[in-house]
């Protein structure tokens, strides 16, 4: 070490900067490279959503960049068609009404269960936990028919409640898995300190565990919301033809037509329906934070 020449002078600051830039260059190249690669399909979709239907089937979407300022090749027709289609406004409301409780309900239930599985002592909790997670693999399609029959008996078919509960149940295995994993890694001393401070399980849960589990809850919330928002299958089966409660995905599907003749509208439809999930992602991204546990326990 001592034999290395040391840079001392201010004029070398520039060299330091340069060196720093050079060493961090691969990082930037990798990040930007992957981000761009990942965005190409979506960019293509975005460009396509402004093109005419005939153009779509004759030339590649990137050809617009040959004359990017030739606005004749763009139009808003697809968006207009999507946004003004019958019942779109109501469908947006319906999608929200379906997605918000269908996200909050499983978050709450999964966090409760995760807490019990991680920090309560009762026989068989490992087995219970693993069985719950194993249910991740059950194909939804297998459950549709028996559940629908029950729904018809109980009058839940075509109701929001029916869809909420179904989405909640389908989301639970992932939620329990993610959140249990996070809660289980909280420092045991913290939970015990709260117990000694006189907190019941309810208080430990609401005052200590919940606030500290925000990153896990936020990530699950994003996934569950996305999944529900973009879901077509569950809505199709459990809501049936009930147009009053139909979400955006159903309206979009109907827009395409029975023979798929208007598939080009999906390009615009995809972006219209993507706005809300992206808002949710950005809103929750700030909760994926560093160092929530800093300062609590050492080591």
């Amino acid at each position: 070490m001592t034999t290395l020449p040391r840079r001392r002078h201010g004029s070398n600051k520039f060299m330091d900067r340069l060196e720093q830039a050079l060493t961090s260059a691969p990082v930037h190249i990798a990040v930007i490279g992957i981000a761009v690669l990942w965005t190409i399909p979506t960019a293509g979709l975005l460009v396509s959503s402004f093109r005419y239907r005939e153009a779509l089937t004759q030339t590649g979407w990137w050809t617009v960049f040959q004359e990017p300022l030739n606005f004749a090749q763009y139009h808003l027709g697809n968006y207009v068609d999507v946004l003004t289609s019958q019942g779109m406004g109501q469908a947006f409301l319906n999608s929200l009404v379906i997605s918000i409780p269908a996200t909050i309900i499983p978050i709450f239930i999964a966090t409760l269960a995760a807490y019990a599985l991680a920090w309560m002592h009762f026989p068989g909790r490992q087995i219970l936990f693993v069985s719950m997670v194993a249910l991740l693999v059950v194909p939804l399609q297998m459950t549709l028919i028996p559940v629908l029959r029950t729904y018809n008996l109980l009058g839940l078919a075509g109701t929001f409640l029916g869809v909420w509960l179904a989405h909640a149940a389908y989301g639970l295995p992932l939620g329990i898995y993610l959140i249990r994993n996070y809660i289980g890694s909280l420092p045991g001393d913290l939970i015990e300190a709260a117990a000694v401070d006189g907190a019941s399980h309810l208080k430990i849960f609401t005052r200590v565990v919940l606030p500290l589990s925000v990153p896990a809850i936020a990530s699950f919330a994003v996934f569950q919301f996305l999944w529900v928002w973009n879901d077509l299958l569950v809505a199709l089966v459990y809501l049936g033809g009930n147009q009053n409660v139909a979400p955006v995905t159903l309206i979009l599907r109907n827009l395409v037509g029975d023979r798929g003749q208007d598939w080009h509208l999906l390009t615009a439809g995809a972006f219209v329906s993507m706005i809300v999930p992206l808002l949710v992602f950005f809103a929750l991204q700030r909760y994926f934070v560093r160092g929530l546990l800093a300062g609590s326990v050492k080591g």
């Binding site: 420092p187 001393d189 500290l212 609590s296």
Partner: peptide
Amino acid sequence: LSPRERDIAMVFQSYALYPH
């Protein structure tokens, strides 16, 4: 009895302060 029913207070070796 659970901890909260015992009327005890404890200082943990790791302090276990609530970080939030």
